[in-house]
Design a protein around this nucleic acid. Sequence first.
DNA 1: TGAAATATCACATGATTATGGGATGGTCAA
DNA 2: TTGACCATCCCATAATCATGTGATATTTCA
Lengths: 208, 208
Amino acid sequence: MIRVGIVEDDKEIRGAVKEYLDDQSDFSCSLACESVELFMKHLNEETLPEIILMDIGLPGMSGIKGIKLIKEQHPDINLIVFTVYHDSDKIFQSLCAGASGYLLKNAPFSEIKQAIKIVHEGGASMSPQIARNVIEFFQAPKNKPESILTDKEQEIVMGLVDGMSYQMIADQCYISIETVRSHIKSIYKKLQVHSKAELIKKSFEGSI
Amino acid sequence: MIRVGIVEDDKEIRGAVKEYLDDQSDFSCSLACESVELFMKHLNEETLPEIILMDIGLPGMSGIKGIKLIKEQHPDINLIVFTVYHDSDKIFQSLCAGASGYLLKNAPFSEIKQAIKIVHEGGASMSPQIARNVIEFFQAPKNKPESILTDKEQEIVMGLVDGMSYQMIADQCYISIETVRSHIKSIYKKLQVHSKAELIKKSFEGSI
DNA sequence: TGAAATATCACATGATTATGGGATGGTCAA
DNA sequence: TTGACCATCCCATAATCATGTGATATTTCA
């Protein structure tokens, strides 16, 4: 018997999911609330779930914050996001906050059930569309849109990012420090930055 | 009818999967080879698949390189990794190379079929265990081992990372620039760095 | 309680950076 | 062949940074 909690503001959905889970022989819904605040208030030994289905767009505290909060206080509980949002931002924020799954609300009951089982067994579950988003996260950095910087300029950026001074870069590239300066001037102009710090930041953000 | 390719060095497995797919009414295995080299050699209009099941541990060219190669030459083909490896390294390398799915070899035929369908519809599919690994990638950086920096110091680091000058940070924190300098001195000492550049780099690497 | 850590400030000096001028020669495509 | 880039160099100046040597007040914790 897997004990499941639900945080979902839509009464209809909350009720339907709860009813469905309670109908299953191997599930029970131990606590279903419309907000994180209420959920935390009613959370006790009696109602403690193993898995929580968590909506994100909630009145009061957001689901993302809710995930963080619950994970801090009950690290053993696994959370599955259950939402209509499928933008990368929400997905990554949820995962970073500690979610172990991400279901879209159009998922059929059977998929919800399946996801809960998987997470309960120590796996993770995502709707295919979400998985695609997540996977593209790893691939995106690859297709770096042809940098507007020339080869030499990129080489110099790499040096700066590695913490080298102009002089060190000059030595490494067998050019004079004046040339390094000159390149950096045009790099700054192209990227619209005005300091090494900004440049390094942009570089790490993958915007080069 | 979804056309599927297989790259898998184990003859038994290759044969079994091919047979299974060919038995399905909505699948056909258009090409099954034991290495990337052979696969590329026999790849033509006739044999062109929409989805490829790709082993990683292959004789000759590795599956990872194979994924890159195939994606470069045929960007429309989607690849699903099919392997025994479940270590993060292999997973991330595969995803970065361009894979749209990652199945473990213990997956039942039905899961393989399901995964191919999902990927064919534009989604991505991972075995639950793999999904867990991927998700933990996002959560790992969270457990940053209690920074040795004090709150104030961290605040200043954030400023520097955002490209602010000492003076700007001083203004923002309502302290004098001398104090900023002082904090930065101890930050540098603690982190064993000697320039903004190195500090920002460390910060982005998550080693703070 | 008393030492250690933290947060705040000051002054000084040399190094490095940011930014503005220019100049020369090479490549490549219109 | 002309103009648009690119890579290379030089000079100059003001701002900023790295680092040192202090000092004082508060907080923390053993």
